[in-house]
Nucleic acid binder design. Structure first.
Length: 581
RNA sequence: GGACCCGUAGCCUAGCCCGGAUAGGGCGUCGGACUUCUAAUCCGAAAGUCGCAGGUUCGAAUCCUGCCGGGUCCGCCA
């Protein structure tokens, strides 16, 4: 097999432009616009300074030099062409198709696969990564924000694992604090001894909403909730028993939701187990003169001068822990548990400042491990921000059910004759694909408005659109009387859509690479849309089954490769393929 | 008051980190394509001051500065 990608091209170009490094050239190389039927383009403007010539002349001369000095082009290149100030390269199609067909689901990490085979670098240390998400509060069920969080966290974990990292997924249950006491108080007042008659986390959440209704009528309830928290901290047995019971309900309910979304963890942390342990670290920091004490005795980290951040309280004046106290400890604990190289926190952007402060405080303590806050934007409803307090949220379970229900109707509409079991199977797969793709195709940084009416779609830029391409290919492969074979004549693949497909296929490894490097999951759905749009154009223009033998065999291999890439890309974002839909 | 994020056709969104070919898609609208590999599809059309104004550059949606509009956050919540 031949390792061919952007870097291979850069290495080749470097032999003609020695004054630029391979990395510089690789950085310069870009993907040409759609209508240019070449794989990579080198804009030569930058060379104009060295060469003191007009860009289009440089491009022309370089291409001539490349073609004449090497007699024939290097094995992996089919064509080089100058076009204005650009030098365009086309990779040899058969090599791309060969790589995909042989590497199968490993094609997306082609470079690692082929380099490992060649150099047998097994002793190379595997990078260890901890990904923390979704870290829910245990007083109410999961909502759409958590869904976004989980989909990002879980597909990032899959992706990093795919690229050779050892990934540990962990979840921090925020099971202690005033929020859970509020649900407990309402339960005591209104539902004592009732057992969940609905999904247990929803049952707990019901009381959280009820609490807020109570508080609205009578603001004194907050004092009662605080009393309950105090009793909890004093380990009052009755309070602890109630707390334990309700937390169990909440966590049980979460587990069901995790399962539906295909999320699982290597370890679950519970804040209540160690929230007080960070206290020692903070006090030691104070003793060492790193932190300061306020007039009333709270410990504060001075961040203003060194970090240009607001100072941060680390310990209450009464000596009790607050949220950051335990997060400091947890950083050490995760290091101890997993000996990680990278620690990623998947948390919404409303906590951007908090994480800057947390990381600064850890650094002050001498804890200098690599940490990254993967911050994502908030989701709004058409009527504004979601408010759990008022029960104005898109509930995760409801949303999942709704997606499946609508998907069922769509399947039923098209194929009423199918068995109910088959319809359910497809609806589950299609509904989940629609949900996951809808959320993951958007750049994690951007906020977005979720309009339930408009967002649940199965047409256009959606998961089902991609699944549909997979199924269409499957259907052709089954109907063709020819079998797949690498011995094809790629010259027959000369339609624009065919050349485009090959071009997009060759980008897959570099898309995966940059998605993993920059933690940008949305690059994968975006890539799939480009690939699938091109396939659908191909599909309507280029018949496969009716084509002559040689052309048919060439097209079969091409579409098989498209199918392989679709499947492995979808797998990375937790979406299943369907052979028929 | 301060810090950070966002502003791309009626609506949604990619591209911004790392400046390069006429700014890509989708929804919606209008007009076409199923006796032919699955129409959850395809083809075509209308629709854009890339928030505004400067600056840097051969070249700016992309980098810098200022402004306008929206959002988030800011010492004892989680």
């Amino acid at each position: 097999m031949n390792l061919i990608d952007r870097k291979t091209v850069a290495e080749y170009v470097h032999s003609f432009i020695p004054y630029l490094s391979i990395d510089q050239i690789e950085n310069l190389i870009e993907r040409p616009p759609k209508e240019v039927n070449y794989t990579y383009a080198l804009p030569v403007f930058q060379l104009a300074r060295h060469e003191r010539k007009a860009p289009h002349l440089i491009a022309k001369e370089l291409s001539q030099k490349m073609i004449s000095t090497s007699l024939s082009l290097p094995e992996f290149l089919e064509d080089i062409k100058h076009e204005g100030p650009y030098l365009n390269f086309r990779l040899k199609p058969i090599l791309i198709l060969e790589n995909i067909y042989q590497l199968k689901e490993n094609y997306g990490r082609m470079r690692e696969e082929l380099e490992n085979v060649n150099s047998n670098q097994k002793e190379m240390e595997t990078n260890r990564v901890v990904v923390e998400y979704p870290s829910p509060n245990t007083n109410k069920p999961l909502h759409l924000g958590h869904v976004r969080n989980m989909l990002i966290g879980s597909s990032l974990s899959t992706l990093l694992d795919y690229k050779g990292n050892r990934v540990f997924q962990v979840n921090l249950n925020n099971d202690r604090g005033i929020h859970i006491c509020k649900s407990m108080l309402a339960y005591k007042k209104l539902g004592e001894n009732e057992k969940p008659d609905i999904k247990p986390d929803h049952f707990v959440g019901k009381f959280y909403v009820k609490y807020n209704e109570l508080e609205e009528q009578d603001p004194h309830f907050i004092e009662e909730a605080q009393k309950l928290l105090k009793k909890w901290e004093e380990k009052d047995p009755q309070t602890r028993a109630l707390w334990k019971k309700m937390n169990q309900w909440a966590v049980e309910g979460f587990e069901e939701t995790y399962k539906k979304l295909g999320v699982s963890f290597d370890k679950q942390y519970f804040e209540s187990d160690y929230y007080w342990k960070g206290k020692e670290l903070v006090l030691k920091g104070y003793k060492d003169g790193i932190f300061e004490k306020t007039e009333d005795g709270a410990i504060v980290a001075p961040l203003e001068e060194t970090y240009n951040l607001p100072d941060k309280i680390l310990l209450r004046s009464d000596g009790t822990a607050i949220y950051i106290t335990q997060d400091i400890y947890l950083a050490y604990l995760k290091k101890k548990d997993f000996n990680y190289d990278d620690s990623i926190y998947v948390v919404g952007n409303e906590q951007n400042l908090y994480f800057k402060q947390l990381f600064a405080v850890l650094e002050m303590l001498g804890f200098k491990e690599r940490k990254y806050h993967l911050s994502y934007g908030m989701i709004y409803l058409p009527e504004g921000k979601m408010k759990s307090r008022e029960g104005k949220v898109v509930d995760a379970d409801d949303l999942i059910e709704e997606m499946k229900t609508i998907a069922y109707e769509e399947v039923d509409k098209r194929y009423p004759h199918l068995s109910k079991q088959e319809k359910l199977y497809r609806a589950e797969s299609i509904g989940m694909a629609a949900l996951k793709f809808f959320i993951l195709k958007i750049s994690p940084k951007s906020d977005f408005v979720f309009d339930p009416e408009e967002s649940i779609s199965f047409e256009g830029e959606t998961g089902p659109y991609v699944q549909y391409v997979y199924a269409r290919i499957q259907s052709i492969l089954e109907k063709s009387t020819f079998s797949l074979d690498l011995a094809i004549d790629t010259n027959l693949l000369n339609d624009d859509t065919e050349l485009d497909l090959i071009k997009y296929l060759s980008y897959f490894p570099e898309i995966i690479d940059s998605a993993a490097k920059n933690y940008e999951i949305h690059l994968i759905p975006q890539y799939l849309l480009n690939l699938c749009q091109t396939f659908n154009s191909f599909y309507s223009k280029c018949p496969v089954i009716q084509a002559d033998k040689e052309l048919q065999k060439a097209r079969l291999l091409l579409i098989k490769c498209v199918q392989i890439v679709i499947q492995s890309a979808l797998h990375l974002i937790g979406i299943q393929t369907l052979e028929e839909m």
